[in-house]
Design a protein around this nucleic acid. Structure first.
Lengths: 112, 112
DNA sequence: TTTATATACATAATTTTGTTATGTATATAA
DNA sequence: TTATATACATAACAAAATTATGTATATAAA
């Protein structure tokens, strides 16, 4: 898997948002979902994804449980209550940052 | 000065774009312009800005000249021809990334 | 007058957060 | 039996920030 350098700083937000819309997801599923939604343009690397999931769990934003499917272990993640609040907060930040960035780069779409 | 963690990866693009619209700018001027355009929400740190300018120059995208104003030295930067092409390329990347990110975060504004 | 703030540059130490590489293990299609 | 997909994890490394520090001048405030 390969990634975009612009991803920096947004990975946690992406994970949290996906888990807001999906109740529970496992790591590999997250990589596939991101690939699907972005038509293959954003591919999460495992070296970035798993440490990010571990950190979100350590921070109390995610909780986990495992399940064996086809003799393979899946580790499912879901939002904690704290995590639910964090989604809102991170989304606000992302929204604001995208606005400012578009202003700086003159990419602001003209509202008709 | 303080910054947004989301800035990661976009600083060079911001610098290049500002220099596309301004012919020549010096470092401090860039920090002020960014602050102004983003209503103080994005503040470039000197520890990020100056190394970024030096790198863009080393890469051949910017050229410099100095000027003394009020007994203080200013180092002006302007785009090289190579730099001009790089702006287009970086902007395309940024545009695409913002699109994908908005899709993932469900922030896509509804087109009316 | 001396102190804080603004202007103007630069760099070193550190931290964050990625990429790349490697490892383990099972299932399935070629 | 070999490659690819599924599924996790971590170590070595690199990029790109933050934070801290340093130099120096101009100007407004205490």
């Amino acid at each position: 898997m390969s990634t975009n350098p612009l991803l920096k700083g947004t990975l946690q937000t992406i994970i949290l948002k996906l888990l807001e819309g999906n109740a529970e997801m496992y790591g590999y599923e997250i990589t596939q979902k991101v690939k699907e939604v972005t038509a293959g343009e954003i591919m999460l690397t495992e070296g970035a994804l798993y440490p990010a999931l571990h950190k979100l769990e350590a921070d109390g934003f995610l909780e986990t449980f495992t399940q064996v499917v086809d003799n393979r272990v899946r580790k499912y993640y879901r939002l904690t209550e704290e995590g639910g609040k964090e989604v809102t907060s991170k989304l606000d930040e992302a929204r604001s940052f995208i606005d400012q960035l578009q202003a700086l780069l003159n990419l602001k779409p003209v509202v008709k």
